[in-house]
Design a protein around this nucleic acid. Structure first.
Lengths: 142, 142
DNA sequence: CGCATATAGGACTAAATTGGTACCATATAA
DNA sequence: TTATATGGTACCAATTTAGTCCTATATGCG
């Protein structure tokens, strides 16, 4: 299905609930804020941190905080952080193991489509999908 | 994962292997052509037919054939035929049951992103992803 | 120091989705 | 009437995803 994983959606919610360079916010507090269980939230935050979108501080009064402003975080970054490199099809994935390559002629064209979608996601930021009133303007050329 | 289902990829391969208004081609023959099992191919062909992309003729010398030329079939049509309405997120899906709506503010913006991707897929045809030499040109405004 | 708080990392289980198969009914050509 | 081929549906298997738990490490403070 062409759908982001549920954990990725949660990832967006968590990023939206955080701020850049403010006091760290604990996983427990965030869990309450977004209405999810602590272990789940914890897992996602660790993953986003590993990808460099967040940073953390351990120990008492510790927690997580954004490394960038929300208007500088693209949807693409978040999705890749949560799901790894975007690959619409098996054959577009460079590490994919499409064993049907002999019967399939779409590989090159498909990669191109992949790029287009990738660009679409790179050109929209987290703050843009929060501002529901603001029109998102996309101009893509490929 | 933002990836089309494997069966959808197979669907593309089958469409590529078919022609408009020629003799019907049997599922068995197609299975050999693309290197997949007959039951699997059969299942996909039935689904594509139901969506109106193919038509079929039963009985001896029966089989499947395209209803349109490949340059008139968009990626979007094929994907929707195989996977149902495209919804990048749970909340973008009108039938989705996102119970976190109270904590999530991205719904409207996300729908917009969904539309952009949808359009990207509508603007590329099957024949374009077969012609690996031809440049696919996309100009999207949303 | 010792204790409470909080993240780091990895392993594990459960649930949901997807892929693949099989069966029986119906239609068609010769 | 027989061989060929699709229509529809139900089912099982495999994979993927979601969610939980446990132990280790770091930090602040009395």
């Amino acid at each position: 299905m062409i759908k982001m994983a549920r954990l990725t959606e949660y990832g967006f919610m968590l990023i939206m609930a955080l701020k850049k360079s403010s006091h760290p916010v604990s996983a427990e507090y965030l869990a309450q804020t977004v209405g999810l269980e602590v272990p789940t939230v914890s897992k996602i935050l660790k993953q986003l941190r590993k990808a460099g979108l967040l940073d953390s501080k351990r120990g008492a009064y510790g927690g997580y905080f954004l490394m960038k402003r929300k208007r500088d975080i693209s949807l693409h970054e978040v999705i890749e952080a949560m799901e790894g490199p975007l690959a619409l099809t098996e054959c577009a994935d460079l590490n994919g193991d499409c064993r049907l390559i002999d019967h399939c002629y779409m590989s090159a064209g498909m990669r191109r489509v992949n790029q287009v979608i990738s660009q679409a996601l790179q050109n929209v930021t987290v703050s843009e999908i929060m501002d529901t009133d603001r029109k998102i303007t996309l101009q893509l050329k490929s």
